[in-house]
Design a binder for these strands. Structure first.
Lengths: 232, 232
DNA sequence: CCGGCCTGATTGATCGATCATTGCTTGACC
DNA sequence: GGTCAAGCAATGATCGATCAATCAGGCCGG
């Protein structure tokens, strides 16, 4: 029986376009690629050691997602940020997440409760700063943070709602990263995430929703000054 | 003084990728391209008499928008439809549009009222069937229909909300077209749009919201049987 | 000195050839 | 008859050259 020549294949055959998309998306979300920066196709091709097509496909995807701006014949740019957009985004997050949370509280079973509990626990146990020597935000914390917020709405029963929460979270992540890079970070003396979790597990929908909304708005408020003072 | 060689330019320099994107999007929305149909890149290149790159870019955009499905190394397909997705979509439309409508009723000024009134009037004056001899849906009616629904939420004050309503409307448009192609269309004896308009202009938020939700669900109900009986 | 046209350089968009992967077909083998 | 794998299209992905639009200076007439 001959062995297969290719071993590394199980489900993981990613195209260059997808790899570049993921890479650029991550860089935009964590602020490595600052808002307004030009996304020069040739330059990126060189950086990723690839042709033009995969890069353009990745950029098209990012543009449709809102993380890049595109004008025909004028190329791509990292989407600019602004206070009005931050307000709009925050408002949307409040609406959609509140709805998802209320429905999850109404519909969620024991499995949902456990998922929220675990996600909150993991989040609290994950350090915010990297632990591998380098400085900067801990990617694992970001992942745990998102996992917690997604767990809250995971039992709402609407795929659209869950996906929208995810997309909005990522859009907001960009603002959080920018604030962080500008030296603004939150002290979080009250451990808001735990408070939200407690209210959710108590099935106290009104309290949970109020805490969640407050959580979003508090974050937005911190970020606001930073965004307002940007050069771009 | 020499004249300019190129005259047709004012703001209208569209790339092939964008043209193809618009074309394909329209074909998917009106059911010309049925759900599940393979979007073969070479074939499309030939049809549009163009190279591969613009087609791929267009397909990438459609995929991010949800109108095409894509798997690495397995190409593109017109997104499938299903009853669960229709339910999810309808639910989302109800939530988002109700919110937008309530806020517009609360915040809208006289200009908003007039815009709604005009949009409703235009909609009622536009024939559903084409008038140019050909049979089939009247594109102008579709446009007027969308314009009316967008007018309802246009004063909500949230760009995100307006954009989301637009995207959801288009997703639903696809289902409406499929139903129509299958011979199902609504009689609409009550002129629901006018009822909604009246309630909105009366600033009767609860009634307007209830009518709008009912409107969406009634449409979805009509479509449901058709989608359930599809081959795919 | 200012505004506008021309020109070259830069960058974006497109093309068609080429490479890689998938999935089907075929045929040996059990 | 069924299984499996090599071989073979068919199709998707990528490449680098080429075409085209935009942008930045520089030149000229006013």
């Amino acid at each position: 029986m001959r062995q297969r020549m290719v071993v590394a294949d199980p489900e993981g055959k990613i195209t260059r376009a997808s790899a570049i998309y993921a890479e650029l998306r991550g860089a935009i979300l964590d602020g490595t690629l600052a808002p307004g920066v030009r996304l020069n196709v040739r330059e990126l091709s060189a950086r990723f050691d690839t042709g033009l097509s995969p890069v353009r496909e990745a950029l098209n995807r990012l543009a449709m997602e809102g993380f890049a701006a595109h004008a025909d014949n004028r190329g791509f740019v990292v989407s600019p940020v602004s206070v009005p957009e931050l307000e709009d985004l925050t408002q949307a997050r409040c609406w959609v997440n509140e709805l998802g949370l209320r429905r999850s509280i109404a519909l969620g079973d024991a499995g949902w409760e456990e998922a929220v509990l675990v996600a909150c626990h993991r989040l609290s146990r994950t350090p915010r700063e990297r632990t591998d020597g380098a400085t900067g935000p801990n990617p694992a914390w970001n992942a745990a943070h998102k996992a917690f917020h997604q767990a809250l709405v995971s039992a709402c029963g609407s795929k659209w709602l869950i996906d929208t929460c995810s997309q909005l979270f990522d859009s907001a992540e960009r603002y959080r990263s920018l604030a962080r890079l500008a030296g603004v970070s939150r002290s979080d003396p009250r451990d808001e995430h735990r408070e939200i979790m407690t209210a959710a597990l108590d099935r106290d929908a009104d309290r949970a929703a109020a805490l969640l909304t407050e959580h979003f708005q508090r974050t937005a408020h911190l970020v606001r000054t930073v965004v307002g003072n940007r050069p771009g």
